[in-house]
Design a protein around this nucleic acid. Sequence first.
DNA 1: ATGTAC
Length: 485
Amino acid sequence: MPVPPQLRQISETIWELPRSFRDGMLVPARFITSEKLLAGLESGVFEQTANVACLPGILKYSFCMPDGHWGYGFPIGGVAAMDSDSGVISPGGIGFDINCGMRLLLTNLTEEEVRPVIKELVDSLFSRIPTGVGCSGFIHCSRSEFRKLLTEGSRWCLKNGFAWPEDLELTEEGGCFEGADPGACSDKAVERGYDQVGTLGSGNHYCEIQVVRPENVFDNKTAAAFGLTIPNQVVISFHSGSRGFGHQVATDYLATFLRVMTGTYGIRTNDRELACAPFRSPDGQAYFAAMKCAVNMGFANRQMILHRIREVFSRVFNRSPQDLGMGMVYDVAHNTAKLETHEIDGEKREVLVHRKGATRCYGPAMAGIPARYQETGQPVIIGGSMETGSFLLAGESSAASTFFTTAHGSGRTMSRHQAKKMVKGQKLLGEMEQRGIHVRTSTYGGLAEEAGFAYKDMDEVASATEMAGLSRRVAKLLPMGNIKG
DNA sequence: ATGTAC
């Protein structure tokens, strides 16, 4: 893909479009990537990252992470910090699936112990965790109970016996964004969401049983601090979000913002998909309070899925989850906007950081990460494709340059439609089976969309984040079994 | 991502 002629290389891992690239750019656009990944960037990503640079109140740079690809308004992999007084909030900078995120769970089992029962485990996970479009959850709470869950996030799960206390410590923000207001969410959003807690969803949402081979551990000391202490240790990671609820919140407020943006607030954007409102305006604050509800739904959703995973392993091995060492490593959100304090030109300021397909990666000794990770930096979980595995990384102090943000996945290289044309899901399933990856899926078409070839090179993305100083590689997690929607 | 066209 040809890059814009105005793009100039700043360092080994930074390319920049200057403000002169487009009228109205308030800051330059920066692409944090590698030479190889840069060559694969779609031209739309340059346009989108430059359009974001025009949004009122944006500070320093409009960023695109190494896994960046074309998205709604912002690129997926887009990062923008706004001045919390004069800046805007934009749903397109957060994503439709608010608090889509990754959670990583340990076991004290080895590959040798798990391999003989992998089919039973995967089949059992598939039958116990609802997957696919429109699926319902296994807890049936009322609409009013769901509104409580929206304000409490993972705390609701703890109160109801679906969490260990340490699960909350090991979730970003303790599994709850404070200030969530269910009153800011439409009845329609509640209607779509109240029955979906504890469901995986579809698309690229999955739950995977993985093995950490000794040759795939890059930082032994940090791996041990993250609980990886056994050769060929088995872990489980999964990817899910706030389902139909978050989608409806995003849809509702995009419509509102489009209605009021120009008339009420006098804001014009290059792309209607960048609809936004001043953060301090009533509309901006209402969306922020509703978005927090969706964030909390996402945390609670992943907590309920975790509960079911523990049940499944416990039943198959006839041992308690505690005895199986099924504690969490961490839970990271990658579709949010959050008020954080960052140093901007030598001055500490409160800014609204939009992360859309981008992971927070606080470094060592920072407030806001668990005590046990103070020396290592927070765990960062980057989900790859179901064929190539995932990465566990650690936050670094040098990530201050991107408001402590790193990549979130491997990033698509082709559309879902294109991927489906290239391989039949049933054939792919057979091939993966032969390579020792047991897969269950709710639709064969959906499986084909997630084929490994439809994604960027996972190793290249992880290496690029490390070279750029955003996060350091700790271990690569290889798939043994996968369930997907 | 998504009751994949409220």
